[in-house]
Simulated assay, not measured.
Amino acid sequence: MTVQIPLGNDALAPEEAGPAHLHEVRPDIAYLRLALVNVVFIGLPSAGDRGFVLVDTGIVGGLEWIARAAAARFGAGARPAAILQTHGHFDHIGALEDLSAEWDTPVLAHPLEHPFLDGRQSYPPPDISADGGLIPKLAPLFPRRPVDVRARLRTLSPDGGIAELPGWRWLHTPGHTPGHVSLWREADRTLIAGDAVITTGQESAYEVALQTPEMHGPPRYFTPDWVSTARSARDLAALEPELLVTGHGRAMAGPSMRAALHHLAEHFEAIAPPERLRGKAPAG
């Protein structure tokens, strides 16, 4: 079961396709889709070197695309002030070790995510019994081992602020991973949710290919804590965002997006988890 988002203009965020297929959704926010996942650039194009932040680093093989997009948007040789990781799953850290070294850039993450980013701990095995398509059956092939960026790894400020992103706050949205975070800007109600909620199904290769706009919980096969995940989805819905940018799927905006997000949050236990768990996770 999924929550359909109508394809009206108030659901699909207005996008301008920029250089290197960047999709600009605010003057200072653009995202780049790398196969099945998005990376996000926060900063005005005029910001230049060290004037922007990169959120997540995509899949293995994405380094050249990310570097090319950064140069096209911010100028040749422009480097981010920080790389902020929403979490450390393989499809979000594919270029992290190389980019952080090449750019000599700090990596920001929640302390509970540090073991997966400093070489200490692998993620738990995937749930191959999760329903929804073929991808859960293939998930054992996906990397779970940690990367090691300990030399540049930094802890997000405990007060929720982000020095490199004035006006933004990070929110702890666990469940998909222990230290998963989302980003929130109150001024224009912009939410960068990572995988706490996503706008396309990740269990079906067909849905991944089509990028059909639907509101979903995080990928079922890599989400071990559905109680915390439900709580995180409800916390995000309560923000009443105007723009939603997620780790998978297209950016969404407006009343239809909010209605779908609220529906997901209110009926999370009946919609988001694997079928065998639906209705069993307490509201929390």
Score class of each variant (00 low, 15 high):
138 L>N: 04
44 L>G: 14
221 Y>W: 11
259 A>T: 14
148 D>H: 06
275 E>H: 02
233 A>M: 08
68 R>Y: 06
11 A>L: 00
108 L>I: 01
242 E>D: 15
42 I>T: 01
144 R>L: 13
13 A>R: 15
31 Y>E: 14
283 A>N: 04
263 H>F: 11
247 G>W: 02
106 P>H: 01
67 A>F: 04
4 Q>F: 08
185 R>V: 02
243 L>T: 15
82 A>R: 14
141 L>M: 10
4 Q>E: 11
194 G>A: 05
173 T>I: 02
71 A>L: 12
190 T>G: 08
159 D>V: 05
143 P>A: 13
102 E>Q: 09
139 A>L: 09
185 R>W: 02
70 A>M: 04
229 T>K: 00
115 P>W: 03
27 P>Y: 10
9 N>V: 10
124 P>Y: 13
14 P>S: 07
86 T>L: 01
12 L>G: 06
7 L>V: 08
175 G>V: 00
157 S>A: 13
164 E>I: 07
27 P>S: 11
175 G>I: 03
69 A>T: 14
173 T>C: 03
267 H>C: 05
202 Q>K: 00
223 T>Q: 07
108 L>S: 00
112 L>F: 03
165 L>S: 05
103 W>F: 11
197 V>P: 01
213 P>A: 10
7 L>R: 11
253 A>W: 13
131 D>P: 07
123 Y>A: 03
131 D>S: 09
184 W>E: 12
77 G>H: 05
280 K>E: 11
194 G>Q: 09
222 F>C: 13
7 L>D: 10
8 G>W: 03
123 Y>K: 03
213 P>R: 08
133 G>A: 07
80 P>T: 09
180 H>W: 00
86 T>K: 00
263 H>N: 15
227 V>Y: 01
23 H>P: 03
216 H>Y: 01
94 G>T: 10
223 T>S: 07
266 E>R: 08
242 E>I: 07
13 A>V: 14
73 R>G: 12
200 T>E: 02
67 A>T: 14
44 L>C: 06
45 P>W: 12
183 L>D: 00
186 E>L: 13
109 A>K: 10
240 E>D: 15
55 V>A: 12
138 L>E: 02
173 T>P: 01
195 D>P: 00
247 G>I: 02
4 Q>D: 12
70 A>Y: 04
195 D>A: 01
126 P>K: 15
216 H>T: 00
20 A>G: 06
48 G>P: 12
82 A>L: 13
16 E>W: 11
146 P>E: 09
89 H>R: 07
178 P>S: 06
74 F>T: 08
135 I>M: 05
160 G>R: 04
252 M>Q: 15
191 L>Y: 07
153 L>C: 02
70 A>I: 05
58 G>I: 08
71 A>E: 15
239 L>K: 11
193 A>R: 08
113 E>D: 06
178 P>G: 02
120 R>N: 00
36 L>V: 13
60 V>L: 12
158 P>F: 04
182 S>K: 09
98 D>R: 05
249 G>V: 13
50 R>H: 15
63 L>D: 08
